[in-house]
């Protein structure tokens, strides 16, 4: 594979994590504009662990997930009372605060005679773990898609398990969930934390492939994109958000000949798509029909027939 294709595939994989993170929150009924904060925390934390303190990536990754997960759970606990737009804006405010604090912060240590560490808007550079250990982009490709495979497997198991049904019930009707014996508070915080950790995986890979990350990488554009992915691809299954990333990153790469007009074309495409499919391509109904077809059951979608 040539390097360009590998880079594109790596980007698709990396952004899939944050798209899944936003999707998980959508399932629980919350719109977050702030998942880029946890992507950024994951990138910075993992980069600092490997570049400043010489840890292995495989230790830095779970640590970064832990840091981002705890931060996300804390934000989740603080914003528990907020719903809908209020929640969305609160997460946005948090994410922008984090990004701007990174712009305002410089903290460097001496590694082999060079200063290494976050340096305001100059970003965090010298994340050389991949380079030092002779990892080529194609090695990262396997790492990313391996992790993505595991995450997807967990998603499918979750969707079929009690946890998945609880999250979906909370997302669909909070009061109903309460009258069914679900402790909504506890699950909201759990889901927020899991979503934060999920975004951090993407951030950690991103940092170690780019080797330098800047606060501006984690601006609101990333957050809204990750939310859009789920809505474009569909809210019926975890494959939806990944399909959304594929369409965006894949589409933008494929039509390079309209370079310069890509956003106009893509923006228009998304706007038109949402008119006809407001819950995305793979929405609940289409996923349900697909499942029935796979199981060879006759789809009875029009329940109005007599019984």
């Amino acid at each position: 594979m040539d390097d360009h294709v590998i880079t594109v595939l790596n980007n698709i994989g990396g952004f899939s994590f944050i798209a899944l993170s936003a999707y998980l929150l959508l399932l629980s009924g919350e719109i977050s504009f702030g998942q880029q904060a946890f992507f950024g925390i994951g990138a910075y934390a993992s980069g600092m662990f490997t570049a400043m303190f010489g840890l292995s990536f495989w230790i830095a990754l779970p640590l970064a997930m832990l840091v981002a997960g705890l931060a996300a759970a804390a934000v989740g606990a603080l914003t528990l009372r907020l719903r809908g737009l209020y929640f969305a804006i609160a997460t946005l405010a948090f994410a922008e605060t984090i990004r701007l604090i990174l712009v305002a912060t410089t903290w460097q240590v001496d590694v082999d005679g060079e200063p290494v560490g976050p340096n305001g808007s100059e970003g965090l550079g010298n994340i050389r773990w991949g380079f030092d250990n002779e990892y080529a982009p194609v090695d990262f490709l396997w790492m990313i898609y391996g992790s993505l495979g595991i995450v997807l497997l967990l998603f499918f198991l979750m969707e079929r398990s009690r946890l998945g049904s609880i999250v979906r019930t909370i997302g669909a009707d909070r009061l109903l969930a309460e009258t069914q014996g679900i402790n909504v508070t506890r699950y909201k915080i759990l889901v927020a934390g899991l979503a934060g950790a999920l975004a951090a995986i993407g951030g950690a890979f991103y940092a170690h492939i780019q080797t330098t990350v800047y606060p501006e990488n984690f601006d609101v554009m990333l957050g809204v994109h990750s939310l859009a992915y789920g809505l474009i691809g569909g809210l019926g299954t975890a494959v939806g958000p990944i399909l959304g990333v594929l369409l965006d990153v894949g589409f933008l790469e494929a039509v390079e000949w309209i370079q310069g007009y890509r956003m106009i074309a893509f923006g228009g495409l998304v706007a038109v798509l949402l008119i006809f499919m407001p819950r995305g391509i793979l929405d609940e109904r289409r996923v349900h029909l697909l499942r029935l077809m796979l199981r060879g059951r006759r789809p009875d979608i029009h329940g109005a027939a007599g019984h």
């Binding site: 967990l154 198991l157 979750m158 398990s161 009690r162 946890l163 049904s165 609880i166 979906r168 019930t169 669909a172 009707d173 109903l176 069914q180 014996g181 679900i182 402790n183 506890r186 699950y187 759990l190 819950r279 929405d283 609940e284 109904r285 349900h288 329940g303």
Partner: peptide, 25 residues
């Protein structure tokens, strides 16, 4: 829940024990 099947609507309600459900995965 309108965009779920009859089966899923019942299935969603079927949880009695406390605990987080992580084990059920």
């Amino acid at each position: 829940i309108p965009h779920m099947s009859a089966f899923e609507n019942i299935w969603l309600a079927q949880h009695r024990r406390p605990g987080m459900g992580l084990r059920d995965i």
